[in-house]
Every structure is written in C-alpha cells, then in structure tokens.
Computed example of a mutant assay.
Amino acid sequence: MRPLKLSQAFTLMESGPVVLVTTHDGTKDNIMTISWTMVMDFTPVFAITTGEWNHSFAALRKHRECVIAIPTVDLLDKVVGIGTCSGADTDKFAKFKLTPVPAQLVRPPLIKECLANIECKVIDIVKKHNIVVLEAVAAYLDTARKEKRTVHAVGDGTFIVDGRKIDRKAMMASRLPSGLC
C-alpha cells in the first residue's frame, strides 16, 4: 500500500448516487447537482451537504422543501453541466432540456427524465457541517425506464457507474447458521 493524501481520503468512501435536487425560491424552479448524500437509518430520512455557496441553499432554508431526483448514466453530461453553472443566472430546466413535472406535496417539481423522484421536507439544518436533513413525503419510480444504472462521484471529476445487482435478500432475511457469524 502507498500513502494517500488525507485531503483525498473522501474519494474512497463517496456514498450514494449523484442526485439532482430541485428547489423553488418563491419565483422560479432551480436544479442543483449533489454527490454528498446520505440515507439516515431505515426511515425515509435523507441528508445532503450544501451551504451558502450554493444558490439553491437559500430556497431550502426559506421554503424548507425540495425534490431529490435520481438520474441515470445516460444523463451524466447534463448532471455535470447542471453542477457547473448557477441557477442565479441560468434556467437549468431550459438549458439542459429537462421536463419539470408538478409534485403532489411540495412546490419544487419532479424531473421527468430521472429514474426516480422523492418529494422532501427540510426537517433540520446542521449549520456546523452544512447538512440539510430531509424527510421524504412521497416517492416515485419510473419502472418503464430502460436505463436504470446510476452514477457515483469519486470526487475528483471521475464517476463510477452501477454494475449488475447481486441478490442476497434471502440470506439477509434468515438467521445465519452458527459458525458463519
């Protein structure tokens, strides 16, 4: 093994898929790209990391709602593009040719082209670490969508694409024989 700069250690543990988060600031919709996400426990509670530097943060703080949209690998260039421009001066839905779909329980829209969308309410903001804690209030999955592979940011401008699924549901649901645990 060779030493790794501590400043790069996060690239070994980057978590869930890169997501798009839609917000509404009272006037217009916006989209931001987020790669720092977390599932909290076995409940529909999630966390994202963002802060004052991000145009959407003010809408999250003021209106306390958003949609987490989960894109697939075929949308990667749009996802990266969304993350490299500001909603302060760009209509990202128009620029990246994405379709806003009215949500049922929150003002920010779903994104039609994404595999899944989760409507969320902000339940906490942990200022010290710029963590926005979200509770899901509705979720949708496009089962007709052919592409289902999501992308994961390594953190240095490269991405990993999901591969094949390996099913261990039965093993996890049953008690392991003694000697195996």
Results as ranks from 00 to 15, higher is better:
L4Q: 01
Q8W: 03
Q8I: 05
A9C: 10
F10T: 06
M13Y: 15
S15P: 12
S15K: 07
G16F: 02
P17L: 02
V19P: 01
L20K: 04
T23E: 03
G26L: 10
S35D: 06
S35Y: 00
V39Q: 14
V39K: 13
M40V: 15
M40P: 04
D41E: 09
F42M: 10
P44V: 04
I48D: 01
I48N: 00
G51Q: 06
W53H: 13
S56Q: 08
L60I: 06
K62T: 14
H63N: 13
C66W: 01
C66T: 08
C66N: 05
V67T: 08
A69N: 13
A69W: 02
A69G: 08
I70Q: 00
V73L: 01
D77L: 08
D77Q: 11
V79S: 00
I82A: 06
I82D: 00
I82M: 04
G83A: 05
T84L: 00
T84Y: 05
C85Y: 02
A88R: 12
K92G: 04
F93V: 09
P102Q: 09
P102K: 14
P102Y: 04
K112W: 02
E113T: 08
E113Y: 09
C114I: 07
L115N: 01
N117S: 10
N117H: 10
C120L: 07
D124P: 04
K128Y: 06
V132A: 00
L134K: 00
A136M: 03
Y140F: 13
Y140C: 02
T143L: 08
R145A: 09
E147F: 01
K148Q: 12
K148N: 06
A153N: 01
V154Q: 03
T158R: 13
T158I: 06
F159P: 01
I166T: 14
R168F: 10
R168W: 03
A170N: 15
A170L: 12
A170G: 13
P177S: 11
P177A: 11
G179N: 12
G179Q: 10
L180M: 14
